[in-house]
Amino acid sequence: MDTHMEDVCKIVNQMEIQLRTNLLLKDGQIQEKKLWENTYIKHQIDRRNSKDLFSIRDHIRGMVYAMLSSGIAWERVEDSIDVSTGKIKVIDEAFHQYDPDVLLTCSPEELSDRVKHLHCASQSTKKQMSGLIHTNIKKLKQIEKVYGSIDTYYQEFIDKDCSYKTLIRTLSDSNSKDKMVEMGEALNAEYLRNVGYDMAKPDRHTRRILGSRILACSDYETVPLFETLDIAKEIADKLKKPVAEVDYILWSYCSKGYGEVCTVINPKCNICVARQICKNSIQS
C-alpha cells in the first residue's frame, strides 16, 4: 500500500473516533442507533459469518430497505429502529413481515400508500412497489424453488468473482434474466449488504469523498461505481475492518443527520480530519 493510502486509512480511523466522540451525540449522549455495531447491515454480516440461513423473507426485507433508502433520510424512521436487531419495525409491519405470498396479493398502490403514511415515500416509490410485486418477488421465489435457497444461486457468481461485481451486474443489467426491476448497481449492492454480503455501497457520498478532490483515492472527482468497491475494500483490508463498516464511516461523515462534516453545501472544513489532504479544503 502506498503512502497516500496509508494516510487515508489513518484519516478513516480519525473519522470514526470523531463520529463517536463529537458528532453522533444528542443532548450529550451518543445516539446508539447510529453506531455501526447497531446497524441492520452489521447484524446481517454477523449472521452470515455465523453461517446462518437467509430466507426469502430476509431477501425481500433487504430489497425493501434498499429501495426505501434511495429516497429518504433514515432519521425519519429512527424511532422505530430496534437497536438489538437494526430492524425497522414500522416498515416490517407495513410489508406484512415480508411474507411473499401475502405481498403478491397486494397492489403497488396499497404498499405505496403504506410507505407514504410512514413519510418514507419518494417519487420512485410507486414504481418500486410495482417492480417488487410484479417482478422481483416472483424471481426470488423461482430462484428459491430451483436452487433450494437464493443464496445458493448467488454463491455461484461469488465463487467466480469474490468482488461481488459479477453478481451486482447480473442483478442490475437490463439484458440479464435475473435483472431486479427498479434496482441499479448501487441499490443492488445495498440489497446484498442487507442480506449479509460484506461490501461497500457506491453511494453518492462515498463516491464523492473518495474522489480526486477530497481523499484523492481515484483520478475521478466522482469515483466510478465498481472502483468504489475496490477502494473501500483496500482500506478495509488495511484496517482489518469489514468493508461495509469502512463504507459506513465514510457515508456517516457526509450524511445529513449523522456526521454532516463533508457535505456538498457548507462543509465543515474547520473540523474535518481530512483537511490536510483535501483539495477542496486546501484551496478554500
Rank of each mutant, 00 (worst) to 15 (best):
H4C: 12
V8C: 10
C9Q: 08
N13L: 15
E16F: 14
Q18P: 05
R20T: 03
L25Y: 09
K33H: 14
E37S: 08
T39P: 07
K42E: 15
N49A: 03
L53Q: 04
R57I: 09
R61Y: 08
G62H: 11
E75Q: 14
R76T: 15
R76Y: 08
D82Q: 11
V83W: 00
I91Q: 01
A94V: 10
P100C: 05
D101N: 15
D101L: 12
L104E: 01
P108S: 00
E110Y: 10
L111D: 02
D113T: 09
V115S: 02
A121Y: 08
Q123M: 09
K126T: 11
S130F: 00
S130V: 00
G131P: 06
T135W: 03
K138V: 14
Q142Y: 07
V146H: 13
G148I: 09
S149W: 06
F157V: 01
D161I: 05
D173S: 15
S176L: 11
M180F: 15
L187E: 01
N188P: 02
A189V: 05
Y191W: 06
R193T: 14
T206E: 02
R207W: 00
L210Y: 12
G211I: 02
G211N: 04
G211H: 08
G211F: 01
R213K: 12
A216S: 13
L225F: 07
L225C: 06
F226S: 06
D230R: 10
I235W: 01
K238N: 14
L239I: 05
L239E: 00
K240F: 04
K241V: 07
Y248N: 11
L250T: 13
L250M: 14
S252H: 12
Y253Q: 11
G259I: 03
C262H: 04
C262N: 07
I265P: 00
A274T: 05
Q276W: 06
C278F: 10
S284H: 14
S284R: 14
